[in-house]
Structure formats: structure tokens, C-alpha cells
Design a protein around this nucleic acid. Structure first.
Length: 490
RNA sequence: GGCCCCAUGGUCGAGUGGUUAAGACACGGGCCUUUCAAGCCCGAGACGGGGGUUCAAUUCCCCCUGGGGUCACCA
């Protein structure tokens, strides 16, 4: 597969969306698989919409996902510059060529006029099209328009007969009637190129071999093909990947919860999990693996295994995958990820690193995201937690529970400090259970409520040994007081 | 509306002219167990409809329906 060069070309108008992230991922995978180059190009020709912060955010997201680019912003490369706004001269040259060869012409219609005419046509029930009125202007007419101060855009002369066929690796051949194509604008009157034109010029001059992009671009492709043709340039291989839809089959938007990569990060998802999930959305490895690491992904990735159908994204599966990676992740990595989160909540700091490590080991099979982990870990770092309503009714506010907890406290108080371990405390508790002639649950459930405020969590002796004797006794006594106070009132 | 794309369980998806139509998430049940998870086992659940082609269509063709995309001096 020769020297593969692919690109991801976001416009800096917002955050990196999961759809864009997946497109970037597929490009990256294809480059890595073929030992080619993954190029990042910024499509900032729309002065009105481009924003400075958006660029940083997109770069951060890509870095976080581990999609490193070989050429592009902050990196440079032989095909630069990588910002379209810095390539204007190049577009002008190419436009000039088209003008010289008679494939392009000046159009003096103003955007307002065009919009007006379009709407008029629509009202008449006709397909809104450009009437090509500037196509055959005489030099005199042009001079007149120009001296009247009219600014002009450049349009491509698109043949009005014949068909343009897009050869797409995942969709086969798709034909479009040229007669349904407008004479597209290639240079705006402000001197900036339009998307389709800049895209073609850049892909061609950057030596892009494969254009892997979202399906929404499929209908742009015949226009681009016309530009390639007019410029006498060879088009790349196209691969239009299916869209990612929201659960209600509509286009993904903010009202469907997290859609930006940054949000997933904030919500406690791991990059490897998101990458794994995104890879599976529209592509599947031959062996059908669901959990697939980067290296394996690169090895197995292939354009011809990308599906044609739009996919609805399902946060449940992402969450499941994340849980898997969270459990498998290197413990120190998880600790590093958690420390800032706990710090932010005022729960822990660097000095508790060792303790945090032990706590994470105890709880991490029970959570699926870092955010869930924050919560699962909270009562190990603060005594200030509520007793879950349902749990306290079931385990705390029953007859004899206060006395039972008193026994429990006494029992654990008697365990020597150096035996206050999982084994040591369990031995003591089992003895107490036997002495009282009750089942284990009778003692364990109220204990869990007293120590954690919850009905669920790690094995109770893990909790006990983790918290340590002092805090266990304090919490037990606190619970006893609370139970008695509650039972007096109502 | 014109043009274009798509159509396998709730979701992601494998698959093929002849299969008991994979697997995963979610769901239900069980095992384990002090709880919840994790893990393991089991279960329910799909080829949108109608015509063709064929000995045989989920698979190939056409139509319909449904969904999506796109119709800018946005990208």
C-alpha cells in the first residue's frame, strides 16, 4: 500500500465531537497500519466562525486519545503550512490556473441576490439552483460590473451533461448527474477559498492518498471530483464512513448528553476505552473481539471492514468497556487520575497516596468510571456521610440494632491493633456471631451501614481493616447514637 | 421537495445463494457470596414489506416503506 498519507481536517469552531474523533481514529489507524503519515490540517477559512480556543481544545482531545499526528500544528512538516488560512496564496494560484484555462469564471452576484433568487425558486417549487448568469459575461459587461464596485466570487464551470462517479471503498460506485450540480463557488468574494476548493487543493498538494471522512461529505465528493478534473489532478481514494447517530436516530447534539471528547474525559472515561468503543462503532475486527487494544487494532484495521450503516451510539456499552479498562489499568495510573479529582473535592491529597491505592483496590471492581470511583471512595476519606434512607430502615432502625452495634464495637475494640486486619477482625466477628447465635448478615449489614452509610461495598472486613480501629469504633458509636436518637423521636 | 446513502434482535454488529443466523452491551435467571460488583453458566430476542431471478434467498435485482445525509460566497 505504497506511501499512505491520510489527514484529519477539523475546522476550529467547537469541541472535538465523538463523530470527529472516530473519523480521526480511522485515519490514524489506517496511517499506522500502513506505516504512513497521519496529517492534521486546520480548516479555518471561515473567519467568522473560527475560534482560537477551539483549536487548543481539539488538539488536547486528540492528544488525550493518543492520536498523534506526524505533520500539522505544533509539529510542522514538509507539506505545510497546515492551517488553511496560511495557504491562501496556494488557492489563489490554483484558482488562477482555472481562470486561465477557462474552467472558472467571475460571478458578480451578491450573496443577498443569490439567496433571494434561491428562495424565489423554492417558492415556485423548483430546485434552487444558480442560473449561471455570469458564466458568459462579455468583457464589457464585466468591466461595467467591476467599475460599479461589484465584488466577484469565482465559480467553476461544471458540465451540464454526463455523470460524475465517486468510487468509494466502502460504498462502491456512486453516480451523480452533472446536470444536478451547480457551478460551485471556489473562491469567495473576500478572497478566501470555499471548503470544497481548499480541500481539493490541499489534499492534492499534501499528497493525500486516502480521504477517510464522514458520510455527510459523500454528496460533496462529485463537486470535488469536478475540481480535481478541472485542475488535472488525480483524486485520492475515498472512504465515507457511516454517521454516528443519537439514540433517537437523530443527529447527535448536546441535548443527547456527552458528545464532546472533553466531556467524556471529565465524566471519568479512559482514553483507551473511548478509543476501543469508537473503533467498534462502524468497524469490527475479523475475530469479533470487543476488547481490543491499540496495537491489535492497528494490526487488524482495514477499510473494507467498515460498515455502511449509521450507528447509534450507546453509552452503556462504552461504560462497560470503560469498566473493563478501569479494572485492568495499572494501579498507579488510576491513583494519579484520582488524586486531582479527590483534591478538587477536598477529600484527599498526595500524602494519602498509599491509602488511596488500597482503597481503590477494594472498590474498583464495583465501578465503571472515574466519577463513579470518586463516589465509591468518598467515605474512606470523610466521616461526613449520610445513612442511606432505605438501608437504614432495613438494617439500622430495627429492634436491638443499637445493642448489637455496641457488642460489635466492644468486640472490635478488643482486637489488638496489630491484629486489626481482614483476618483478625473477621475471626473476632465470627466468634461474636457464633456467641450471639445469629447469622452473619444480621451483624454485617448494620455494621456496613454504620461504617459506610450504604448497603453496598467491598467485603465488610476489607472496609473495617481499611478504615482502621479508631475510625471504625468512632463510626460505630456515632451510629449507635444516631439510632437511639431516631428511635426516641418518631 | 430534488439528489445521494443505508436497512440482521432494544443497541453495536458477524455472516452467506443452502448456517441450529455468530459474538458483545443491555435485559431475565442461576452459581459464587455478608451486600454490591467482578467472574462463570444459562435464557429470551433479529434478517422491514412486496415482487422477481434461482432447485434454493437474509444474501442478487426491482418497487415500496422507513431512517439518514445533502442541496450556501459553512466546513
Amino acid at each position: 500500500m505504497g506511501n499512505v498519507r491520510v489527514r484529519f481536517a477539523p475546522s476550529p469552531t467547537g469541541y472535538l465531537h465523538i463523530g470527529g474523533a472516530r473519523t480521526a481514529l480511522f485515519n490514524w489507524l489506517w496511517a499506522r497500519k500502513n506505516e504512513g503519515s497521519f496529517i492534521l490540517r486546520i480548516e479555518d477559512t471561515d473567519l467568522k466562525r473560527s475560534r482560537e480556543e477551539a483549536l487548543g481544545s481539539i488538539l488536547d482531545s486528540l492528544r488525550w486519545l493518543g492520536l498523534d499526528w506526524d505533520e500539522g500544528p505544533e509539529k510542522g512538516g514538509p507539506a505545510g503550512p497546515y492551517f488553511q488560512s496560511e495557504r491562501i496564496e496556494l488557492y489563489r494560484q490554483h484558482a488562477e490556473r482555472l481562470l486561465a484555462s477557462g474552467r472558472a469564471y467571475h460571478c458578480y452576484c451578491s450573496p443577498e441576490e443569490l439567496t433571494e433568487r434561491r428562495e424565489a425558486m423554492r417558492r415556485e417549487g423548483k430546485a434552487p439552483r444558480y442560473d449561471r448568469r455570469c458564466r458568459d459575461l462579455t468583457p464589457e459587461e464585466r468591466r461595467a460590473l467591476e467599475s460599479a464596485g461589484r465584488r466577484s466570487a469565482l465559480r467553476l464551470k461544471v458540465p451540464d451533461t454526463g455523470t460524475t462517479v465517486v468510487r468509494d471503498v466502502i460504498r462502491g460506485q456512486v453516480s451523480f448527474d452533472n446536470s444536478s450540480m451547480d457551478d460551485i463557488v471556489i473562491m469567495k468574494s473576500d478572497g478566501m477559498p470555499t471548503y470544497n476548493f481548499a480541500c481539493v487543493v490541499d489534499d492534492a498538494t499534501m499528497g493525500i492518498t486516502h480521504v477517510i471522512r464522514g458520510e455527510e461529505h459523500l454528496s460533496n465528493t462529485p463537486k470535488q471530483l469536478q475540481i480535481y478534473e478541472a485542475l488535472d489532478l488525480r483524486p485520492p481514494v475515498f472512504a465515507h464512513v457511516p454517521m454516528i447517530l443519537a439514540p433517537d436516530r437523530s443527529k447527535l447534539s448536546k441535548r443527547h448528553g456527552a458528545t464532546a471528547v472533553e466531556e467524556f474525559r471529565e465524566d471519568g472515561y479512559l482514553p483507551e476505552a473511548l478509543v476501543n468503543y469508537l473503533a467498534l462503532l462502524g468497524w469490527s475486527p475479523e475475530g469479533g473481539e470487543e476488547i481490543i487494544g491499540r496495537a491489535q487494532m492497528i494490526e487488524q484495521f482495514d477499510l473494507d471492514r467498515i460498515s455502511k450503516t449509521a450507528a447509534i451510539y450507546d453509552i452503556k456499552k462504552l461504560t462497560w468497556i470503560n469498566g473493563h479498562y478501569l479494572r485492568e489499568a495499572d494501579l498507579e495510573v488510576v491513583v494519579d487520575l484520582m488524586l486531582p479529582r479527590l483534591k478538587r473535592r477536598g477529600l484527599a491529597d498526595e500524602s494519602q497516596r498509599g491509602y488511596l491505592r488500597d482503597v481503590i483496590v477494594a472498590v474498583r471492581t464495583r465501578v465503571r468510571t472515574l466519577t463513579e470511583l470518586e463516589d465509591a471512595v468518598s467515605y474512606y476519606f470523610t466521616d461526613d456521610f449520610p445513612y442511606e434512607e432505605k438501608g437504614s430502615r432495613k438494617y439500622l432502625l430495627k429492634d436491638g440494632v443499637a445493642d448489637l452495634l455496641r457488642e460489635a464495637a466492644q468486640c472490635l475494640a478488643a482486637v489488638p491493633d496489630d491484629h486489626f486486619t481482614v483476618e483478625g477482625t473477621e475471626r473476632a466477628y465470627r466468634q461474636l456471631i457464633a456467641d450471639l447465635g445469629i447469622t452473619g448478615g444480621k451483624l454485617i449489614h448494620p455494621t456496613r451501614m454504620a461504617l459506610t452509610g450504604r448497603t453496598v461495598g467491598p467485603g465488610i472486613f476489607d472496609v473495617i481493616s481499611l478504615l482502621g480501629k479508631r475510625r471504625v469504633l468512632e463510626r460505630l458509636n456515632k451510629a449507635i447514637d444516631w439510632v437511639e436518637a431516631q428511635r426516641e423521636e418518631p
